[in-house]
Design a protein around this nucleic acid. Sequence first.
DNA 1: GGTTTTTGTGTAAGCGCTTTACGTTTGGGA
DNA 2: TCCCAAACGTAAAGCGCTTACACAAAAACC
Lengths: 336, 336
Amino acid sequence: MKPTIYDVAEKAGVSISTVSRVINNTGRISEKTKKKVLQVMESLRYQPSVVASALTGKRTRTIGLIIPDVANPFFAEIARRIEDRGRELGFNLLMCNTDNNQHTEEMALSLLKQKSVDGIIIGTTTKNYTLLNELLQEQFPVALIAQDIPELVIDVVTVDDFLGGYQATSHLVSLGHTKIAFLMGNSGRTSDKYRLQAYRQVLEENRLPFDERLVVETDYSMEAGKRAALEILASPQRPTAIFAGFDLIAIGVYQAAKELGLRIPDDLSVVGFDNTILATIVDPPLTTIAQPIDEMGRQVMDLLVREIEGSKSTKQRVILPPELIIRNSTKEIAGA
Amino acid sequence: MKPTIYDVAEKAGVSISTVSRVINNTGRISEKTKKKVLQVMESLRYQPSVVASALTGKRTRTIGLIIPDVANPFFAEIARRIEDRGRELGFNLLMCNTDNNQHTEEMALSLLKQKSVDGIIIGTTTKNYTLLNELLQEQFPVALIAQDIPELVIDVVTVDDFLGGYQATSHLVSLGHTKIAFLMGNSGRTSDKYRLQAYRQVLEENRLPFDERLVVETDYSMEAGKRAALEILASPQRPTAIFAGFDLIAIGVYQAAKELGLRIPDDLSVVGFDNTILATIVDPPLTTIAQPIDEMGRQVMDLLVREIEGSKSTKQRVILPPELIIRNSTKEIAGA
DNA sequence: GGTTTTTGTGTAAGCGCTTTACGTTTGGGA
DNA sequence: TCCCAAACGTAAAGCGCTTACACAAAAACC
């Protein structure tokens, strides 16, 4: 049987509260007893039960992470960074994938609470503000990553989507493109909205016409990206450049282009968003907007932990700058 | 304050044991009281505390997952499948990334036990058999995924690495290649060993010479793969084909080839292993050995859960067949 | 109608730990 | 030598839940 604090106490010839004190390093204890107890703990290979101590009001040192899909490289990288920072801070990660499914998300949230996680990081497109609001109401530590809900007072860490969209579109425009398509996600993320705004603004600033047929909503997958690209590239208003809302979608565009015999970047310029590993391995390497994933993961975790430890009273939004990474998928428009 | 079982009991005018009974659906309860209690739970938005119930000997319905790195697409996909199956079965995943670092792994194991997970799935190359043996000794549910430790009686789910290596090498040989390099992982995974054995056996069966300078060990990263490939492709015994132990390494080979001006598959054939998303997006699409990731994830979870629920007494190894996916990175040797 | 069963519910003892409120020891100053 | 703070330990309550065990009340039996 697993040794308990009683076993340690008995073997060390002290009371359990004394053992508890050395475990938590609280109260006064003589060096001698402390040493003795430590020694016994070692010899018994004693490990305090987090479950029991959580029951007495202490933290579980576990935080919940809700994301759409770890198999999506962007979220995998995010998850990794969060876990890393969590480990440094002494927290573990309970991971839930929801595929942005409302019901799965509600289940996840409920489960995480039952399991007494100390806080929750959400990376999915929650539509259920009610549930979120409830959490906030009861002061439960929550933070949003890579997503914002402007209507709520909540801790958020995102990239500056407007700026990213601006950089991407500007880059394309500066290369002489005038017919630029924008493939955006369809799940109502604010990020998509901001990027779209930027896209429109750049067009406007450059006195380029906005053609709504050139912006299409798609799923967050390669296949969906491919389908959307195929369609738009076959249409009469075929664009010479495509701004894809995510690297994954950009890859779909690559496939569509290949199928249609279009060369990138000669016949079609493509810029992505995220700068996941995918962007570096496709051919040609993808010009994309880099999200500071490392920084983002680190900062949400920090934000959340400060909230958990109560060393912070006001919520905050952390908006990090994106960076345009020019690789070889974009080029001056032919004949320009 | 969060409602407890007492609150429910009081409001429903029954004792807490009655409430507990309806929660767990145990013992006898009249339909009437049951309904009443359920109703009160609903109205109070009561959720039983997993922590408290775990303390009384029930499960936490949480399982630990130890992998090298979720940011590695292979493990991300594995993690995703495991989580999916876990959700179906009512288990959550506590995820730990170790980068195959011995110390991190030990910490993770220790933490997971402190947190009373019901079982642990390990996907890292554990060298610490002692620790593992301890777990097994105390009948703690553990299962290995995508990795085997032949010396231990333990639940394992892997792909048939020997067969995979055999398929890969045979494919290359059947295309006329005689100078085939093998880039394998360097962390002592048994999978690498089996693949190497298969590689040698195929060469032997085909009366091809085995040149040990053509097998090189490398890290599990693109960069490492690239470095290794660069080196081997510059050597006097330049191979005409490379069997890369992982898709990630294969991508490194692509990059090396590009840098050297070698065309794939014309000047160099490449086959990978894993069939992650990466294999489909590189150009040319990578011929690779597919691991049945879905099936693997599902099966470890099943195995582990059966162990947890005690409905299974003997350990077992589940060896799933790989599949050679021929795409465009391999070709008959020039002039053959 | 009385005696068994059966059924429904309550009581109370923990699970392993933290923590508060008290006892005991020391030992230094007067 | 005596007194009073430290300094150190201990006992006990309680966290929210499960689970024997006990015990009425209701149903079943002859």
